[in-house]
């Protein structure tokens, strides 16, 4: 979707706050939200649907509210959507347990357990049985000119642009369909774009921008 989240190349956000305190969580609630997002999620959710729900936060809130705050709002939206929480419960802060049905029982895990088993959180998104690229390395490609109103990972700034296939990564879950609950795989490539192909003021600069793009975002060109 052409939402506010698609920030690459947008101008006017001012300087970057470079001198921040070096801590994982600046506030206790940030750590709580991070942990909540690790412990539970709405059923049948995919990372792509979750990201889409975050993109759908009203633009003013997306830009102005703190980062982990937007995670909390995204989580809440997915629980409401899955009929696990209601607006009424959120208004009152009191759970109506009569509506709770067949929910998974939470597990109590210690720090030691989480540390030892952390590698289980390294989720794989590729299909190991598919590793045949259909576009060759160094092949020139043109990206799709348009996006669509659903979730997509082809940013606006790289649409309708010429690039070169840099690396092949196998077939990965295609996010545009995964965000609709449909799991399919498509070849994934790192594609290199000359800065001057993307930005009018970059003429003469030798910099490059690399994006990881799925096959259906790309058209082979001569």
């Amino acid at each position: 979707m052409d939402g506010i989240h698609d920030l690459g190349g947008k101008e006017g956000f001012g300087p970057i706050e470079v001198d921040e305190e070096h801590v994982a969580f600046r506030y206790i609630w940030e750590g709580r939200e991070w942990a909540l997002s690790r412990c539970a999620r709405a059923p049948h959710i995919s990372i792509d649907w979750w990201r889409h729900c975050r993109e759908l936060i009203q633009a003013e809130d997306y830009l102005n509210r703190p980062y982990f705050d937007s995670w909390a709002q995204t989580d809440l939206s997915t629980y409401i959507n899955a009929d696990i929480l209601s607006i009424e419960e959120i208004k009152t802060g009191k759970a109506d347990n009569s509506s709770t049905k067949n929910l998974p029982v939470p597990v109590k895990l210690s720090l030691e357990y989480l540390r030892k088993n952390h590698r289980e959180n390294a989720i794989k998104f590729n299909n190991p049985e598919r590793s045949e690229p259909s576009i060759k390395i160094n092949q020139s490609v043109l990206t799709n000119r348009n996006g669509h109103s659903g979730h997509t990972r082809l940013p606006q700034y790289a649409r309708g642009r010429h690039g070169v296939i840099h690396k092949y990564h196998g077939a990965h879950i295609f996010p545009d369909l995964s965000a609709k609950g449909i799991k399919t795989y498509q070849n994934l490539y790192s594609v290199a774009f000359e800065a001057a192909e993307l930005w009018p003021e970059a003429n003469g600069r030798r910099d490059r921008i690399f994006l990881d793009l799925w096959e259906s975002y790309l058209i082979e060109v001569n």
Partner: peptide, 16 residues
């Protein structure tokens, strides 16, 4: 609602 365990949340915060 019994969807998360408080001690597991604490452990995740500590881990990171």
């Amino acid at each position: 609602k019994g969807l998360v365990n408080g001690e597991t949340i604490d452990a995740w915060v500590e881990l990171y």
